[in-house]
Write a protein that binds this DNA or RNA. Structure first.
Lengths: 189, 189, 189, 189
DNA sequence: AATGAATGAGGATTCATTCAT
DNA sequence: GATGAATGAATCCTCATTCAT
């Protein structure tokens, strides 16, 4: 057991533990000690590596976004047909991994944080910009005004996500987003 | 200065102060003392009337929902034409009062709370059910499947609200919701 | 046991406890808890009344200076002869109370604090200004240049105090200061 | 790059870094890590060489005293006339190097430390004894009672130093000490 | 010789909550 | 009805110190 080069390992463990703890608790009201204990180290070490609670949270958020991006890319890679890209994005947004309690909690608290924490807001904005530009690209050629269509679809995705994640876990959000897409593209269902 | 019958006045003052304080802080990280001071009384009294912090928050949320409902009813009352009801609901959801920092903060923290706090979740579900049923009613006769249309429109409203409230304060969310409605009803703009 | 009007009592108790604790420890490395416990209350209450550790220390320093001032006035009040005032001031500066371990500790840490803490520096300057002006007044008519004489005598008093307080507890500093005064006034001893 | 014989170099670097850090901070509230980093090594190594924080401080104090002694000897070496020695000592005590922020800080914290730390007290006593014996020697033949004169002058030097270092950086302490010396020796200026 | 890793202990501060008046 | 008094519990963070490599 080498005692060198632990930093990335510890950081990753802490980020994972942070997400898990937030997920279990359902809020940001988790202590550094809880996270550190779950990650198998002292809270002092957590501070040593991250500098403070906020930065642990921020790292966790970045991880969530990375995971989400990976999901999107995975789905996009599955198809080569351009007219299937929007569907792929929708599928990614409603993948099971997105409804993992940890992810839901992190995401919701994320929205809360964005009001106070500039870094959180920046990350959130980044996510939204990416989703929007992905959708614009995917809708080009399929709808008359891709910008507007993307905006609507993006908002719908966020809105459906919240509904399903919070209040209606059993609904098929994906199907609804597909319906909306059909509506936008004028396809007959 | 009568010393009796103060309860409702005190409670209202506390609820108002709670909303204002949450709005200013941008999070639920506000102390009972802050709220009580703003309401012009001791924190002990706040506890006396509400029993605890959580219940103050809950009362504040109820108030927010009441305000929101009032806005909806006000808009609905402005028109007698049934085919204007959906528009009225949209207008209510994007009224200036909904973008008041206090309201945004309360609403976002609400989403966060809903994961842990059963009462918060119940209130949130209530809101969503009401919005949905209002929309179903409003869309009846205008779209083929009012249930699905309502679902889409509701999700879109929530999604647009989050976007605009958090990351794009200058965008015209109302116009987009109208566009979506036109899309659903098949109206040419 | 009335439960109202405790603030001044608590504050006084804390200040006294702070001085005593600093005296016992011999440094500013004392915890708020220690002070609070000695004063018979929780550390939370200490914070409640003073706002923070620094302010407790500051209050303690003010108390030390008040005590010192009282000593000076007491000695000055003992004589009506103007040509005895300098002697009175010297006596006050070397009164037993000034060599109380608590006072010595507080005074020394005071010097240390003055470099970092603006308030501490202000208090220290105040003390020095007062001593100087007292001495100028007392030397007027007895020496050719009261300002310079006062400066010298004041420095000598501080210097002797430090020596005696720290390294030579058994020396008679007062006698030396009298010798210096005689030197300045040209009196034959 | 030889790996042997580093000890004295490391120790010297740490001592210098300690003095500089104390000077910058204005207090003893500096961490071993800060000192070690400034000295270009890990805090673990600092511990390895010195055994603990206290010993680093002590070494720093010894260095300060060494520097001070060097200043005294330098000034004494400049003159061969015995009746100029007292002046030389005074000049050394108010040399610019003595008012270097680092030195002032170290010196003041020194006074504070002396109450708790036996080693610090020993060093301080050593300094005072040396100053006193230097002055006695220098005053022999110039004043009737060199012992008393030395005592007075030593106290005056310390007192003036504190005043000037802490509260009146622009005053000419040296001139005042000269005035006092003239007073003692009965010289007309 | 040198260091990154790791922690235990502690400390200031905050706050919801209770209680005597 | 109302409040000042009071606190226990908790939390973030710091730091000297130790140890394996």
């Amino acid at each position: 057991m080498p005692k060198v080069g632990m930093e990335p390992i510890r950081r990753a463990a802490l980020v994972e533990a942070a997400i898990a703890t937030i997920g279990e608790t359902g809020s940001l009201d988790v202590t550094v000690s809880q996270i550190a204990k779950r990650a198998g180290m002292s809270s002092a070490l957590a501070h040593h590596y991250f500098g403070g609670k906020d930065q642990i949270f921020l790292a966790a958020m970045r991880q969530i976004l990375r995971d989400y991006s990976a999901e999107v890319h995975k789905e996009l890679a599955k198809t080569t047909r351009h007219d299937q890209r929007a569907e792929a994005i929708i599928r990614a947004n409603f993948a099971d991994s997105c409804f993992d309690p940890s992810a839901v909690s992190a995401w919701m608290t994320f929205y809360g944080q964005a009001q106070t924490n500039a870094d959180a807001l920046r990350l959130l904005t980044l996510y939204q910009r990416r989703l929007r530009s992905n959708l614009i690209h995917a809708l080009r050629g399929r709808v008359a005004e891709p910008e507007i269509g993307a905006e609507l679809l993006a908002a719908l995705i966020d809105g459906l996500y919240i509904r399903v994640a919070l209040t209606a876990p059993d609904e098929d959000a994906e199907a609804k987003a597909f319906a909306m897409l059909a509506q936008l593209t004028g396809d007959t269902q």
